[in-house]
Design a protein around this nucleic acid. Structure first.
Lengths: 132, 132
DNA sequence: CGGAATCCTGCCTGATACTG
DNA sequence: CAGTATCAGGCAGGATTCCG
């Protein structure tokens, strides 16, 4: 152990890292829900159940791939339900679960914050760009 | 304009999209702050000013590149300040502005939510995996 | 309509080396 | 210490096409 070189330090750091992740898996979940698409979807579904196409219209910045992918992941996590009505044409509705609702409340606050402080952020960016 | 084909529809959709973004730039900001690293950094800095190395130790999952990048972007947006103490060795401290603090409050709630409902999400995932 | 499959680009990571 | 620079490799994500 006396070989306290770069390699040893890195190994040590890795152990610390693993311990950290094990001790704090909530960081992982926090990282998961702090996703661009997740936030937008939750807010969009806040008003109630939506069809896939409506959802995609409300979040045009999301590609169909990412939208589907995010929806699946949210479904897996139990934040929303996916209901297929086997009609022609097919109809698929997404709706928040109570768990999803509770998170949506918080996300709505973040959204409000974004709306309220948007100009402030804008000014900060301009001020910063000015002295560059 | 009578050529209402797929191409025309797409062009139309693009116009709608632009209009949407122009009308709702808050979505853009919401997308920006709903970033994995942003959330983690805000929470980490919630307790007070931190040096770069301390910050990096608290968020080991972030590469040095993304950490620096995210910090710069948050600085540009006026959410935190970067203070360089020209000593040897150099010392750089990051601290939330009042604007950053206000957002951090909300992020802390999201973090709490993540901690409280982590097991619930875990169970949902297992249940979902079971019927696959 | 609501996707799945494919291809392809560009960003992210991780490691390493160098600067002030 | 706090970065910047660079390169290999991987994976997220966009665009397109096709299917039930």
């Amino acid at each position: 152990m006396a070989t306290a070189t770069a390699a040893a330090r890195r190994a040590e750091a890795k152990i610390e890292y693993d311990a950290f992740v094990a001790a704090c898996p909530s960081q992982k979940l926090l990282g998961r829900i702090s996703d661009k698409w997740v936030a937008l979807i939750l807010v969009a579904l806040g008003e109630g159940s939506l069809r896939y196409s409506e959802l995609s219209r409300r979040i045009p910045s999301a590609s169909q791939k990412m939208l589907t992918q995010s929806l699946r992941s949210l479904e897996r996590d139990g934040l929303l339900t996916r209901t297929v009505t086997a009609d022609v044409p097919v109809r698929v509705d997404y709706e928040l679960t109570s768990l999803g609702m509770s998170l949506r409340e918080l996300m709505a606050q973040i959204k409000s914050w974004a709306e309220q402080h948007m100009d402030e952020v804008e000014r900060a960016r301009e001020a910063h760009a000015a002295l560059a």
